[in-house]
Nucleic acid binder design. Structure first.
Lengths: 342, 342
DNA sequence: GAAGCGACTGGAAACGCTTCCAGTCACCAA
DNA sequence: TTGGTGACTGGAAGCGTTTCCAGTCGCTTC
């Protein structure tokens, strides 16, 4: 009854103290069948009294699986990634899986991860958060018997959960059009690590404009990395335009906030003078009155986690690819354009 | 040479193929001493060729330690926590330790964690990020032979890394005083989970005012939870004050941003009409032109990680408690007060 | 030339579980 | 009674390492 004796208690001890064989003790603790209820109770009682816990190493060694899954995350300090991980953690832990964290900064780190596979033999599955893995890398995992799921980031070859970037950008741009803008700029953002990858959020912009017959002015499209400072710089370029836009569609809230700082410093009020819309609904978007398209990364994590559990159960997941909804949230940073010469 | 045969290769196989005993093979792979260089090379070569990796379970079982550390984190999606974890991860992984993530939401989750100790027998050490553990809980871990370190969050009884909240708030408030404010409000924030805990950032406020002979006006101190929305609400109350402040010291950047939204909605311009200063230097602070006191959570994580490594090496850490510096960053949200009747 | 030494090696004994196999036992149907 | 069944049980054989112990071997050192 006194707290946790530092001496090591093993299953054998528990079995002896409960007056049963090790086999029975093991079955009782792992609540397998074929154990008499009274026996099970007795074993459980003894284990409890002695603060006994099975040794995971021994258990896993004997069982053959690891009971762990690796989370591979690029930018943990950013809201989106942290939220996805929170969601994942909650469902995986609920299923008694342990979560091994692998923070991989840039693209080279990611490749290094899949090359050296530090998680090798340590996990039953890998969840990649917010980026794509190359087909060769995926195959490598497959031959190793490690399952893979993507949370955030669309992909055709393995199960994933993500928003529809095309829909999201349509929601944003359609809103600007709807309130009356016609001269709409886009702050397009690319991953500075792989700037050649096309933005998945720009096709919606082009499509929205085309649909209402607005000609795209290519000088109104600025591409930069996805940092806030980059957004600010891009906006500066736009302000130097001979005929500046009345509204701006930013790739993300962060980029949008950068743009807003530039506007303010130029004496322009977002919403009143220039409308700005982002994507994400970052918690600070509400605090900065930013109109945006909301996505729920924690929920994406939850769904990805559930998908993974199904796969570990041996079932094929119901859907290889799950798309979660996004929703326009109108705040103060967008409004109808000012009348000319106002 | 072809990629990863799915058949299981064990140490015994490697040993046989290299023409050595298992003992020698093991020593070669774990680069222990007493192995002839040529033998080691041969073993390594064979292992390499067959994509062999030691089974962590078996290795740990035989060794007796886990090679893992648990990170217990309350709010992964927030910048501060995510950054600390990034820092921790980098140094722990560098030392070949695996990082097990435990996301614990509220205070009750935290207690549940220490009560049930899901990490029991799974880790060699625990790092708690940004909160305190109770003495009883700490002792429990100690008797289990699990080390503990705090990253962020001051504490006397176990090693920790943190900023000096008192100094930080002095830096913020001194700045306001320095530029000429005398009517300075404080938006004090408390953990909604344990609202009884005194704020560690308010004493600096009182001290700073006292030092220059400003009487504290208690109606200028508003206490609320630490969310941005709460900051906004607190600021509203302040704006209703018969003689409102010319400057506001906010417990954190997030609270400050909430306050700023309230100001803007009331037609007041931060900096020009009311000065606002926060603490953290959240990445979005730069984007919103917020004056703040910078702290570097990733670095705190790194230091905590190093401290832990020392402890796992058996050395007492050089310092039980490490304080990292903070630094005032002046931006547009603070300025001298407007002249009366301006 | 015997003894001593140090570098290296092979193999067996843990490490603490899970699971398979061979029982034992009470009970029921024929 | 006999045989069959099904529920339960004990113990042994792994699981894949690490590490200890007992050697072997080639050199020194008296």
């Amino acid at each position: 009854m006194d707290d946790a004796p530092p001496t090591k208690v093993t299953l054998v001890d528990i079995a002896r103290m409960a007056g049963v064989g090790v086999g029975t003790a093991s079955r009782a603790l792992s609540n397998a069948k074929n154990v008499a209820p009274s026996t099970r109770a007795r074993v459980l009682r003894v284990a409890e009294d002695h603060h006994y816990v099975v040794s995971p190493e021994a258990s896993r060694l004997a069982r053959g699986n690891t009971g762990r899954v690796a989370l591979v995350v690029p930018h943990l300090s950013r809201w989106y990634f942290g939220s996805v991980v929170e969601g994942l953690d909650s469902v995986l832990r609920g299923a008694d899986l342990d979560v091994l964290l692998y923070h991989v900064g840039g693209v080279s780190d990611r490749h290094a991860f899949f090359d050296k596979l530090p998680a090798r033999r340590k996990v039953d599955a890998v969840v990649v958060v917010g980026f794509q893995v190359e087909e060769a890398e995926r195959l490598r995992l497959e031959t190793l018997g490690v399952q893979i799921v993507a949370a955030g980031g669309q992909t055709a070859t393995y199960p994933s959960v993500h928003i529809d970037d095309h829909v999201a950008s349509r929601q944003a741009v359609d809103h600007l059009i709807h309130v009356g803008h016609t001269r709409i700029a886009m702050l397009e953002a690319v991953d500075p690590d792989q700037p050649h990858l096309p933005s998945t959020r720009s096709p919606g912009y082009y499509e929205a404009l085309a649909q209402v017959g607005i000609d795209v002015d290519p000088t109104l499209v600025v591409t930069a990395p996805w940092g806030g400072e980059d957004g600010a710089a891009s906006m500066s370029r736009l302000l130097g335009h001979p005929s500046p836009p009345t509204a701006v569609f930013a790739h993300s809230d962060e980029v949008a906030l950068g743009a807003i700082r530039t506007l303010r410093r130029a004496g322009l009020e977002p919403g009143r003078d220039v409308s700005v819309v982002g994507i994400d609904d970052h918690p600070l978007a509400a605090l900065t009155d930013l109109t945006t398209v909301r996505q729920d990364p924690a929920h994406q994590g939850v769904l990805a986690g559930r998908m993974l559990l199904e796969m570990l159960d041996g079932k094929e997941p119901a859907e290889k690819s799950t798309t979660v909804d996004t929703e326009l949230v109108v705040r103060g940073s967008t409004a109808p354009p000012r009348r000319r010469h106002a």
